[in-house]
């Protein structure tokens, strides 16, 4: 029983890290434990911590806590874990079988960094066109986007702090855009910066925050909202810093 409970917690933890809503994770852990034959399960999850206690019919109880540090969106992994938890609920699997399937699910394929970099650049250039930029601006946006992604990789390794990484990413994006303006490639930086804002903005964070808030997980929702707002402010701060410096230099 303890082994099975441990598996359920690991699945829940990985689901939360891959970007699942709190409600879904709590529900999955509860259903899995009920399938294992628990009398009662109490699960409490916020974005940075998980606590669950399982009460068996024999009168024992197990408690586990998990600390969650970073949440990144990996919906393929989430999909596989979700399938696994459904499987567990519909068939009798042993702890060993679950562990093998769990390992398989978390080691799913991810796109290589180069592909990610290219798509980052494509998003930036697509949104430059979307908001009314011309072809030249879109090409510059493409290059800026790719460099920003490289910058983010570097800062994630060295700085680690998500909000500060976004700030520095915006600094890079804005400085490159102002450089393009200085060289005379474009007549205004507006569309270039807008394209890059779209890749950095915490739209997903805010969407998840709202969904958490209104499915009854107020604390997790509030935490997510705060982090989304702080990220947006960090992006604005990055832009301001470059414009002030740019004002001195140009």
């Amino acid at each position: 029983m303890k082994q099975l409970f441990n598996c359920a917690m690991s699945i829940g933890e990985e689901m939360l890290i891959s970007g699942a809503e709190v409600h879904r994770v709590e529900e999955s852990i509860r259903l899995m434990c009920e399938r294992f034959g628990a009398k009662r399960v109490d699960v409490f999850i916020i974005t940075s911590s998980m606590v669950a206690t399982l009460y068996t019919k024999e009168g024992d109880s197990f408690t586990e806590t998990r600390r969650i540090s970073t949440i990144s969106n990996n919906f393929e992994k989430l999909h596989r874990l979700n399938q696994l938890s459904r499987n567990i609920c519909s068939s009798n699997l042993t702890a060993e079988e679950i562990k093998i399937m769990f390992e398989k699910a978390i080691n799913c394929k991810t796109y290589s960094f180069i592909v990610e970099c290219i798509f980052y650049a494509i998003i930036a250039s697509a949104f430059t066109l979307f908001f009314g930029g011309n072809i030249i601006e879109s090409v510059i946006s493409f290059i800026t986007g790719a460099i920003v992604r490289l910058g983010i990789l570097f800062f994630e390794k060295t700085v680690g702090n998500n909000i500060f990484t976004k700030f520095l990413a915006m600094v890079i994006a804005a400085s490159l855009s102002f450089t393009a303006l200085k060289i005379g490639l474009v007549s205004s930086v507006d569309k270039l910066i807008i394209g890059n804002i779209m890749t950095l903005i915490p739209g997903v964070g805010l969407t998840n925050a709202l969904r958490d808030l209104f499915t009854g997980d107020s604390i997790a929702g509030i935490l997510r909202t705060i982090s989304a707002v702080l990220t947006a402010l960090a992006i604005a701060a990055g832009y301001f810093l470059v414009t002030i410096l740019g004002g001195f230099l140009i």
């Binding site: 879904r24 989430l78 979700n82 507006d190 807008i194 804002i197 903005i201 969407t207």
Partner: peptide, 27 residues
Amino acid sequence: LKTPTTTFITTSLIPLIPGSSLYYTMA
């Protein structure tokens, strides 16, 4: 498709994010 809703909701609403007006507000 038997997958969490987040998968579609987050990606589909991307074009609606008011990036442009947010930028001009800052500017």
